[in-house]
Amino acid sequence: MKLPQRVRIKYCGGCNPRYDRTALAAKLRAAFPGLDMPETDEDGGPYDFVAVLCGCPAACAEHEGLEGRAGKMLIVSADQYEALAAAVRERLG
């Protein structure tokens, strides 16, 4: 059986987010029901793609060492959702 591709969702700490990071992650999940999107490293890597969801342009999330086979994308605004979805579609499609 082929395992679903994995998009690791990594959040910043969320001290003063300018958009709802968990809602954006939920939207991504709904758009790609066939992908596995873990929010912790409990099951370990590797990951096919990494989406780092930061609440503001300070982008202070610690994501060093967290890499996806098909890349990583840093999000600092809800406006970047379409670009994120497009990247997931193109790179994991």
């Binding site: 969702i9 959040y11 910043c12 700490g13 969320g14 968990t22 929010e39 912790t40 999330a61 610690e62």
Partner: peptide, 8 residues
Amino acid sequence: KPEYEDLM
């Protein structure tokens, strides 16, 4: 909570 663990 994953959305806060980076600070907590």
